[in-house]
Write a protein that binds this DNA or RNA. Sequence first.
DNA 1: CGGAAACTTGATCGAATTCAAATAAGGTGG
DNA 2: CCACCTTATTTGAATTCGATCAAGTTTCCG
Lengths: 219, 219
Amino acid sequence: VRDRGFCGALDLDRPSLARSYRSIPARRLIYKGGDITDDVHVIRDGWAACLYRLPDGRHQILAFLIPGDLVSVGALFKEFHTFSVQALTDVAYCMFRRAELQKEMMGNRRVFEKFVEIGFAEKEAADQAVVSLGRRSAPARIAHLILSLMTRLQARGLVGDMKFDLPLRQQHIADAVGLTTVHVSRVINKFRKEGLLDLAHRRVQIANLTGLQRIADEG
Amino acid sequence: VRDRGFCGALDLDRPSLARSYRSIPARRLIYKGGDITDDVHVIRDGWAACLYRLPDGRHQILAFLIPGDLVSVGALFKEFHTFSVQALTDVAYCMFRRAELQKEMMGNRRVFEKFVEIGFAEKEAADQAVVSLGRRSAPARIAHLILSLMTRLQARGLVGDMKFDLPLRQQHIADAVGLTTVHVSRVINKFRKEGLLDLAHRRVQIANLTGLQRIADEG
DNA sequence: CGGAAACTTGATCGAATTCAAATAAGGTGG
DNA sequence: CCACCTTATTTGAATTCGATCAAGTTTCCG
């Protein structure tokens, strides 16, 4: 797999800005909510999630991060976040210094616009999540999530022939769409039985795209 | 009530930038999702909401806009939104031209940082909404909404003695927290009976702040 | 191969929805 | 200011979707 640290969402042409490279095993926190830091993280390989921890131990996943993703443009301007970032698989990532990235951004119109674009994509995704959680049924939420992940993975060339790696536990899906793992399991099995998709061994195969889209939009 | 068109969230010191002033009655759309426009709207008086319309006629409110609020920093860079903006009460608003506001922003460090700050506040609010809708009970969501509105209104000096105007129909609350009006009514009445708040004639009185906060955090 | 984590399945429960009707609040023209 | 009509809110009963509880089963890894 080629290095997506600079060419993914971020698309910088100054790799020398990267301050350090790291790897971290699945489940470990890459960043703990509230901690003050000068670092801006970019995922190079593996999956991670931005998540909010409720006082009682429950979680809500705010975003999934795939290879090439900047953790959040917020990191460019703020020295801490309210959410944590957790590795879902083993993750390779790199870090930039906020100040340097900020200078790069302010001095280069193209980079500036790239960050603006990423920021709005984040806002757009958050708004869509609100719509899903607020007004869509469980099957619709799950279908939506899978389709939106496919779209993002496609943009990174990570989807082939309606198949792609989806290294999420059902717990992660549940924490993203506001359901329990038990119910996620039931819904996915229903999808399977209805011939909509095949999900096994951390891989999905979309078997009936329009069927899935119908469920995503009308539930 | 003094004019908050320039001094509210936006805090520009160049009122001359405003292109035009308008008024619009309750229920009317200020902006229709998908329409292309050069205008950036700022609410001067009254309440409005950013909302997403589902194909089947249901709504999800993404944000409430109170006097002084910019509709969305997204308007500074994009020529359309996916959401609509609807007046919830009679609304007075003004419009800027995107290009002019953008120039003002790029030429003035303070204004730039103000927009960055507003943008992150929007993202933060969206993330909090995701957490609420995904993982909190109906009472917790409603309590959260009311408390967060109070905080925002306080910042604009619109709260006195734990009382403030809340010109929302229960339908608006329902569309914001992902419930039905029937259930919103039941929950609010429970709050009333438990002596947590008093809500009547478009005005709220918080009777037991810590009690409400407890419900907001543990539901 | 063995143990732990993840997933599945069934039974039961409960929060919120739906349906339906009654009451209250607003707004308008007379 | 009142009668009337519309829009909101409240309340009750029945229903449903998804949660919870409790085993099983499968998968994953060392």
